[in-house]
Amino acid sequence: MWTASLGPKPRMSEATPAFQFASVPQQREAATLGMWTFLATEVLFFGALIAAYSAYRIAWPDEIAAAARHTKVALGAINTAVLLTSSAFMASAVAFDEAKRRRPVVLCLLATAVLGLLFIGIKGYEYCLEYQEGLVPALNFQLGRYGGIGELFFLFYFFATGFHAVHLTIGIAMVVMLAVRTGAGHPPHAPVLRMVGLYWHFVDIVWIFLFPLIYLPGRVG
């Protein structure tokens, strides 16, 4: 709540830091540290799910492998490549931003967002296929064909990929917003682009671990 008596409302810009900071570098360091702290919480959020999944993977290895064979490994691998490429574009956007080249920044951000949407599209297609095969727990899971542990596996599958997709959607929204603002000539100050970048890469890392855990078991024999 700002009133005239408190002075002008502080703007988040390169020139003047927000009122609680003494300098712009201090503000940037605080933002970076805050983002990494947030990512540490995210590691444990997804990590808890992976821990639960691992416990069952150890207890029921054959059943989990049998269930995992029903995931679409080709689509999963393509999607991993899509996401890795989007991350490379995101990193390139940051690099171009450092060189103060606005147009390539916007193009890289748009490429990142488009690849993110492509990932969501492919993921949605997979969900459709799984629905048709009767693999959605509690909705149409065909226990007779896949067994109880199979349903547990697919619950983890939908939980993990679903939370990942939610995170990615938030990331796409932020990247699009950044691209629009930068393209219109009002780029937010540099930390914002970097913060979104950190978040995007983290979502990528979650997928890097989900892919072998979900898609790759049980491919032998």
Binding site: T41, E42, F45, F46, A48, P137, A138, L155, F159
Partner: peptide, 30 residues
Amino acid sequence: VLATPVLAMTLLMLVAERVLGIGIFDPALG
């Protein structure tokens, strides 16, 4: 910062088990 996210995920699994009837923690369901 480091403990709360684990509780968050655990509670969500409880909700999933309760609402969807899938045995994440129920021994009768594996």
